[in-house]
Amino acid sequence: MEMMIIKAITNPIFWFALLAFGVVLLFVGKKMNILNNTAYAAMVSVVIVVAYFHIVDHYLMEMQGLDYWYLFRK
């Protein structure tokens, strides 16, 4: 189980999916006019931002031939 979670979160596709999910939420929120609702906005923002920073961390380390998830894979 633990292995599964680690495998999932160390895969950039997971974070891309999360980012896409966030963007979808953004558009849904816009359609349904609840984007300015504080709780909803906070949720969407956190999803997008967290996914974004993980992608940044992952790819910028990979670009240098290094593994961002070093500690978790061990």
Binding site: G29, N36, S45, F53
Partner: peptide, 18 residues
């Protein structure tokens, strides 16, 4: 802008997580 509330929250979240 009509989405100013979301914009502010998003900005806050972005800086916070940065």
């Amino acid at each position: 802008v009509p989405w100013k509330n979301f914009g502010n929250i998003f900005m806050g979240a972005f800086f916070g997580f940065a």
